[in-house]
Structures are given as C-alpha cells and as structure tokens.
Design a protein around this nucleic acid. Sequence first.
DNA 1: GGCAGTGTAGTCAAACTTGACTAGTGACCT
DNA 2: AGGTCACTAGTCAAGTTTGACTACACTGCC
Lengths: 213, 213
Amino acid sequence: MSAIRLLVLGAVRQHGRAHGYQVRNDLEYWGAHEWSNAKPGSIYHALKQMAKQGLLHAHEIAPSTAGGPPRTEYEITEKGTAEYLSLLREALLAHDQKPDVLSAALGFMVDLDREEVLGLLQQRVRTIRQWRAAVTDHYTPEDGPAQLGHIGEIMNFWVHSADAGAEWTQGLIERIRGGAYTFAGEGEPFVGVLTEGQENPYATGQRHPEDSR
Amino acid sequence: MSAIRLLVLGAVRQHGRAHGYQVRNDLEYWGAHEWSNAKPGSIYHALKQMAKQGLLHAHEIAPSTAGGPPRTEYEITEKGTAEYLSLLREALLAHDQKPDVLSAALGFMVDLDREEVLGLLQQRVRTIRQWRAAVTDHYTPEDGPAQLGHIGEIMNFWVHSADAGAEWTQGLIERIRGGAYTFAGEGEPFVGVLTEGQENPYATGQRHPEDSR
DNA sequence: GGCAGTGTAGTCAAACTTGACTAGTGACCT
DNA sequence: AGGTCACTAGTCAAGTTTGACTACACTGCC
C-alpha cells in the first residue's frame, strides 16, 4: 500500500469537500512532502483515480476565485469512507517496511476511537515480535550466524529496526492509554487542517530542516 | 534513489556477466524480494534501461540451454562501475527514509575498502544527529510541543527511528573497526552469489518467515 | 505413457510516480 | 508604469513498478 491514497482520502474527508490544491496544502502542513511521496502529480492522479473508482465524487466547478485553471472539488463517498477506514486500520496494524504509511496513519488515528486504536497497536506489537522470532529462527544457519558473513548485517539491521518499532509502538500505547489526544467521539476534535486564510507555519521554505540532509 | 539499480548493478558486477534470471536469483538469495521491490518486472526493466544508458553492455545470446525464451547477458561497463560505486557510497551516507537502499548497500559494502566504509558510516551518524537537531528545533513551537496534538506523534516517530538508526550504525562501525568481515583488497572475498548448480537455501518457499506478517 | 509439478526465462498492460512545465492573478518595488 | 516575484491551480510526458501472464523443458510417479 502506498501512503498517498490514505493521505488524500483523509484530507478530503476532513474538509468535507476539497479541491486538489487544498489537499496539497494540507499535506504540506502535515509535513507529508517530507516523509511521503506526496508530490502534486501524485495527488492529482490519486484524486482522479479514486474518483474513477467511486471512492470520491467529483464536482466540476467554475474557474477558481484566485485565478488559475478551473478546479474540481471532491467529496468522499460512502465507499470512499469505508476504504479510508480500512486503509487506516491496516496501516496501524501492518508492520510494513514503509514508514510513510505508518506516519500517515498516525495523523489520522484520531478518526477511530481510542479503544480500537489501542487494540490495533497492541496487535501491531505482537506481530512484530512474531516476525522477529520467525526471522531470527529461519535465517540463522545451524553452524552459527557467522556463515552469513556481512550479509548477516542486513538481517541484523531489519531486526534492530523491528525492535525499535515495537518499542516505540509500546510507548505510544502508553501515552494513548494515559489519556493523550482526542479520539473519535470524545468531543471537539483536534483541528488538523488549515482553515480559510490561516497562515501555514510549515509552508515550504528555506528554513526547512529536511534541506540539510 | 530506488534500491533496484544498486542491487542489479552489484549483482551483475559480482558475476562478471549475467542474464536476467541469474540476477533475479541472486537477489532472492539475499532475501531482497522481502525487503525491496525486486520483482521480475523491475529487474528486467532496470537491466534494459541501464543498458540503454550505457551502464551495462548487452550481449544477445542464443536460446538458453535450459529451455525458455532466448536470453540476454549483461556485463557492467566502466561507466556502470562508476555509477555503482557512486550509488553505493551515497546509500551508505544518506539517511533517506528508504531502508531498502541501506540494506542493499550493506550487502555490497565490502566492495569498498574498510577505511572508506568507516568514514562513510561515521558521516552517516553525524548527518542523522544534525537532522534530528534541526527537526526537533524547527517543529517545536514556542508554546510547547502540546500545540501539535497527535500530529506531534509523527515527528516523534521519525525522531525515534532516526535515533535507532544512529545507534545501529554506531554498532556496525564498532564491529567493522573490530575487524569483522572481509573488505576490498583484504584477500579472498566473501562469496555472495550462487555458483552454478549450487542449491539456494533461501529460495522462495512456504517456510519463509515473511509470510507470517 | 500421460500429466502434474517445478524450474527457467522473460513479456506485457495497467497503474503509479516524478519533475518540469503552463498560465493566470495579485503584490511589491523602483 | 513596468518588471519581477510569489501564489493558486493544475497538466503532461517520461520513467518506474506491479502482478499476471506466456512458453518451454525436465522430473517423478502412478
């Protein structure tokens, strides 16, 4: 699964109705251009594709108020909402090697309710532990790990990453259990989109940390 | 950078001369189908593309000895070798979010010499630390991190991952400094490819750990 | 002797991603 | 008054990735 669909669906859903540029802006606000492949091309493509698949409903709209080409507004459909929630759950569960998918899911986890998220994250930890056991078991030759030579470092790296992931997930579980954040059905949600005219503190600019990579 | 070019160049280089299926097999032997996008389509595509770009030289060969369609053998060119080494160095250095690139580089690091690898890895650690400082500095609002709400967990996740990456890199540095593995110019290299007729202990099969994800 | 399974080798269309590009509007500067 | 810059909004061609598919040869076995 690529993160783009989850991001776009989630962004449209939060707005109720959004055009491409709005989605693009939200993703930038969340820093998604830094940790995912949320380029303009991908976003517009995803919008069109998902409209074609019935996950979004496209409204052709007159030329924009702010100049530029005519824009299309999108609304999420029922099918789209179902797909969104399913992608979101899977992203929280699956210990894929794609960190961008998990990041996207973190941004949207509050669309589920607290207990469900806790359950998914606990399952995540269990899955990682199982995977770890299976890998170390399978890839360790009878005559000791030295047989693998430097190739063994690849496995070592993955195991180390998995451990770090499990540990971090455990920390998140504890924060959530301790009452952090506002989940679905718990009152006024955290506002994660830019309202009309609000300045974006994280807009693309020269002061960005990722430029120093 | 995607890992596929590095993987394919490295595989062809180790063989001296290889056809697509051989490359495909090597990558499977290294477990690359598990942690990278090394699907047949990508491999054949990369071979053709890189031949077109002059990184590989293609020899059209008579129908294979073992049935099936005629096959093409590839040899790495000088330009290809230069590109390979450059990709390899960059993969060891760059703290991209793509773990597959680093994994591939680990498999090939012994093509460089020990001191160079140590230098690159040390630089890697420094870069990660700088990135971490820049990120925590930039994304922490004056009025405390609580302002970010659950969105802050995204940053938290990346920082945690970066820390784990730095720590792991440090461990690798110490193992290498301690004399582990055989690097370029240090005598008989570790054999990382399957020789003709050798059985592949990690061939695709039902017993694979990743299936239990 | 037939045939199911496995191994060898690669192709193909469809989907996705990338990076550069178009094009209009308003703001600021000189 | 004119030029440059940034912002809004999106398109496009080229490149890459995916997953399913083709096609042949050998091997074992009932």
